[in-house]
């Protein structure tokens, strides 16, 4: 009870700090801390998978993306918007209070009507052993409701192409912070890079039985990529070579081809033939999503060996 209240209150206070008043920079930092506390909240509620995803993607990668965008906007020196008029904030206050009341009321009503009899989840728990998977979340994502996951990988791909369309020019001149020149960075990167890859592959493999899986692994790879970009080990490139482009689409492509392939041999569309297919699809997704997130961070079409 105490911990529930502590975490829940912490979330609200941090959201307040991130959103209302103060400098934007402070807001972004508070938002990242909010993500950390939400990670604790998911863990406390009993969902290690969500905790990992929130830490790596929700707070980590999202925070890095917002930070770099903030830094770029400062460089562009765009006009800082003025503060809103009081009349507008009064109306907003009324709307916000109404929304809070509505969500609170329906939330309370919904949990008071909880029966603990979620049909779908019950069927899932009964069917899961047939798949050879131990982690129900991986089961849902890759086997039972894999159409969602397939389209979700397509969403990530669409976000990359759309971001390229928005940024225009096929060049890599979007600014990045200068790499710090300190002797300590090299040993850090040299240690972290292989270690992160090992942990990512472990997460991917463990995801079939325990918490973990392709998404968390891809976020780890993305974090490693961001580190490499920031330390100048990897630089933005003016064009995506065929390897990069292949990496971008391999997740969607492998998923679709496995699904269609099953159709050819007479199984249902997108049926997963065995545990090897789960690993194959997850590995492809991990590469695609991780690479896409790094490219979105670098703001460039491709990556090159060393920053020029």
């Amino acid at each position: 009870m105490v911990i529930d209240v502590f975490l829940a209150l912490g979330l609200v206070v941090l959201a307040w700090q991130a959103l209302i008043g103060g400098s934007l920079f402070r807001g972004i930092v508070m938002f990242i801390v909010f993500g950390m506390v939400l990670t604790l909240a998911w863990a406390w509620l009993g969902s290690p998978d969500l905790a990992m995803a929130e830490a790596a993607i929700g707070a980590g990668v999202t925070g890095a993306l917002i930070m770099i965008a903030y830094w770029r906007l400062r460089r562009i020196n765009a006009v800082e918007p003025r503060d809103p008029s009081p009349a507008r904030s009064r109306l907003a206050l009324v709307i916000a209070v109404l929304a809070t009341g509505l969500v609170g009321a329906i939330g309370l009503a919904a949990v008071s009507a909880l029966t603990g009899d979620a049909t779908a989840a019950r069927v899932m728990n009964e069917t899961l052993p047939d798949t050879g998977l131990g982690n129900p979340i991986t089961g849902v994502l890759i086997v039972f409701r894999n159409l969602d996951t397939l389209l979700e990988v397509a969403v990530v791909l669409a976000a990359y192409i759309a971001a390229r369309a928005a940024l225009g020019r096929e060049s890599a001149d979007l600014p990045l912070p200068p790499a710090p020149d300190t002797p300590l960075l090299t040993p850090l990167v040299v240690t972290l890079a292989p270690l992160t890859m090992v942990v990512a592959i472990y997460l991917l493999k463990a995801g079939s039985q325990y918490p973990g899986g392709a998404f968390q692994a891809s976020a780890l790879l993305a974090a490693l990529g961001v580190l490499l970009v920031l330390t100048g080990r990897v630089g933005p490139a003016a064009a995506a070579n065929w390897l990069t482009r292949a990496g971008l689409v391999i997740g969607t492509l492998v998923f679709c081809l496995v699904g269609l392939g099953m159709l050819v041999i007479g199984a249902p569309l997108l049926a997963i033939p065995g545990i090897w297919a789960v690993y194959l699809i997850e590995a492809a997704m991990m590469i695609s999503i991780g690479l896409t997130l790094v490219l979105l961070f670098a703001g460039a079409p491709g990556l090159s060996g060393k920053r020029s």
Binding site: L150, A154, L157, I161, W242, R245, A246, L248, V249, T252, L253, C256, L257, G259, L260, L263, P268, L269
Partner: peptide, 24 residues
């Protein structure tokens, strides 16, 4: 039936991937 429905959804998605990878 499943083949035709799959064609409606997956064929454009696969083609989008190929359009991104193939040259010229």
């Amino acid at each position: 039936v499943a083949e035709a429905l799959a064609c409606l959804v997956l064929v454009p998605v696969v083609a989008a991937c190929l359009a991104l990878v193939l040259p010229g």
